[in-house]
């Protein structure tokens, strides 16, 4: 049976929507049709909506009132996520995709969970690595080996975003350039590390949480802001060591790796940078007996999350991740960000 594409409403029309979601949805034309794009800037709303043949809106109420909108993607600044997700649910939409983080604290996340329970509208978080097919294949193999991760190390070293955005689309709203931060200022260091965890490490922390049995004993053991922009964070959780670095540089080579080590196996995930449409990551799992590699697959995690959204919108919320699991991810991320930020603030001046 052929099903009509689901009507999509997109809240927020910044570079992520322009470079990631619209090109992804263009490839999924049998599943989705963009019907409405909202941005507080009417010129941006009109221009981005025009690219997709959609109607523009300048308020979420206007977008939610559009009967053609069946699923909603919340791509606004994170401070607006929770009320907008809840508004979409209460408007009777079929499903909501919210960019990460889907709330800024646990209380907001609980309100989303309550609205989801009351309305029956499922929500998924746009943590694209959790939907990357190489990750999904890799974690299935990892778990089939019975491997128990004791060390997880993340490395993210990226060139300027513009290098990728401008290859994926023609960006309408270029990012403002920022000055050189003063790392002698404790509040600047704290803010940089907090932002680094919520902006970059956030992609992989849900994977980390999946790999370790529990995250109720998290202790940050090191954290530092890196010049000119970056973070270094080390933590232990239930006896496991987790270490993450992230750095934005002017060099051209993107590195996005997640390494997982157990007593008898090692998994290395190598992700493509954000914004590009270059297929999935690769997952390489080595034991003393053999090395197995998964990927790259044709589609990436962005496409994976939209496919997941289609599945839960058309087959029911049973296919959706539990909101409790999303809350646990969020709480873990916020706990790491807060503790690491506090540690970076206390660091002696250099």
């Amino acid at each position: 049976m052929t099903r009509e594409p689901l009507g999509v409403g997109i809240v927020g029309a910044g570079p992520v929507v322009q470079a990631i979601h619209l090109p992804t949805l263009a490839r999924l034309g049998e599943l989705f049709e963009v019907r409405n794009v909202m941005d507080v800037n009417p010129d941006v709303a009109a221009a981005v909506a025009g690219r997709a043949g959609a109607s523009p809106s300048t308020s979420i109420d206007e977008l939610l009132a559009d009967d053609g909108v069946e699923v909603v993607a919340i791509c606004s600044p994170s401070a607006f996520h929770a009320p907008q997700v809840i508004a979409a649910m209460r408007a009777g939409k079929r499903a909501v995709l919210c960019e990460k983080p889907f709330a800024t604290d646990r209380e907001q996340a609980e309100l989303i969970a309550e609205a989801s329970r009351e309305t029956g509208v499922p929500v998924i978080v746009g943590a694209m690595h959790t939907y990357d097919p190489a990750w999904l294949a890799g974690i299935a193999e990892w778990e089939s080996l019975g491997a128990d991760a004791h060390t997880i190390r993340s490395r993210v070293v990226l060139p300027p975003n513009s290098r990728f955005e401008t290859s994926a689309t023609e960006v309408l709203t270029p990012r403002p350039s920022s000055g050189l931060p003063d790392l002698g200022d404790p509040s600047v260091r704290a803010q940089m590390v907090f932002g680094g965890v919520l902006g970059l490490a956030v992609h992989d922390l849900p994977l980390v949480r999946r790999l370790i049995p529990a995250t109720d004993e998290v202790a940050v053991v090191s954290a530092s802001a890196l010049s000119p922009w970056g973070y270094e964070v080390g933590l232990t959780a239930n006896g496991r060591l987790v270490h993450a670095i992230g750095a934005l540089t002017e060099q051209w080579r993107p590195t996005w790796e997640l390494e997982v080590v157990s007593d008898h196996a090692r998994m290395l995930l190598e992700f493509p940078p954000s914004y590009v449409h270059a297929g999935s990551a690769t997952a390489t799992i080595a034991t003393s007996a053999r090395t197995v590699r998964f990927g790259p697959y044709p589609h990436n995690g962005y496409e994976g999350e939209w496919r997941a959204l289609h599945a839960i919108a058309t087959t029911g919320s049973a296919a959706a991740p539990s909101v409790e699991s999303l809350i646990d991810d969020l709480v873990f991320i916020l706990e790491v960000a807060s503790a690491a930020s506090a540690t970076a603030r206390r660091e002696e001046a250099r």
């Binding site: 004791h150 060390t151 190390r153 060591l241 270490h243 080590v261 157990s262 007593d263 008898h264 196996a265 090692r266 080595a286 034991t287 003393s288 007996a289 090395t291």
Partner: peptide
């Protein structure tokens, strides 16, 4: 940092 494991 160092981890202990086989297969490397």
């Amino acid at each position: 940092s160092a981890a202990r494991g086989d297969g490397v």
